[in-house]
């Protein structure tokens, strides 16, 4: 093999670290008050752990889904559960009605009642799940990234750096608009990112979108 390490053909890391370390924390004077007080990004907790950790090192197992740095999860609106319940009911009415009619025509009254009961049970289950889901949802804007956590069965914690956001969109369906809530979705170049915050009060969603867009612009870069 004639692969000599002559000159590095790639762009050399001309000034690694210097500018990055001296990078001033961007001004937070836009009056939204969304910036958390702590700067959790400052303490270098080293991984792999055999290096001497300086500062708060490993997380406890029960702290794995905590926001960290003395921050609190911002919850989503309590209307999340009601929104899901209403959606479920709107689906359940035609399914329950048409299904019950067909079952009633074929099998009589008792199976029809059982069908309606099953649909009703599904609605209640959907509502219960949505309510549990709402309790697990939380997001925090940190100095350099947004973290979102949610999930009833599979728990998730997603860290999206502001510099990686391609765009932020806010969507609100008819029902959502009527209830005064909206969904904020963050898009990065990775399809797997899936950082979605549903059921935020409309005003809060707009403010969050503006803050995220601004922070994204400050730190934006190519792929």
């Amino acid at each position: 093999m004639n692969a000599s390490h002559g000159e590095p053909p790639y762009e050399p890391a001309a000034n690694p670290g210097q500018q990055g370390a001296a990078h001033p924390p961007s001004p937070s004077g836009q009056g939204h008050g969304g910036r958390p007080p702590g700067q959790p990004g400052q303490v270098p907790a080293h991984y792999p752990p055999h290096q001497p950790p300086s500062g708060p090192p490993a997380y406890q197992a029960d702290q794995a889904f905590a926001p960290g740095g003395g921050l609190q999860w911002s919850p989503i609106s309590k209307r999340h559960g009601w929104h899901r319940l209403l959606t479920a009911i709107l689906w359940a009415i035609p399914i329950g009605g048409v299904g019950a009619f067909i079952v009633w025509g074929n099998g009589g009254l008792v199976p029809a009642v059982m069908w309606v009961a099953a649909v009703g049970l599904a609605v209640v289950l959907a509502w219960l799940l949505a309510e549990l889901d709402r309790r697990t949802y939380g997001y925090v804007e940190r100095a350099d990234d947004l973290i979102v956590t949610h999930g009833v069965f599979v728990r998730r914690l997603i860290v999206v750096p502001y510099g990686r956001m391609q765009f932020v969109d806010v969507t609100a369906g008819l029902l959502e608009r009527w209830m005064g809530i909206a969904t904020v979705r963050l898009h990065t170049a990775a399809a797997a990112t899936d950082a979605t915050i549903p059921s935020l009060p409309t005003a809060e969603a707009a403010l969050l979108r503006d803050r995220l867009a601004q922070k994204g612009e400050e730190r934006s870069m190519g792929l």
Binding site: G41, P44, A45, Y47, P57, A58, Y59, A64, D144
Partner: peptide
């Protein structure tokens, strides 16, 4: 779990 969260934080940093 705790280690995983530490990896997340260190990777983000």
């Amino acid at each position: 779990l705790g280690e995983a969260r530490a990896i997340v934080e260190s990777t983000a940093r």
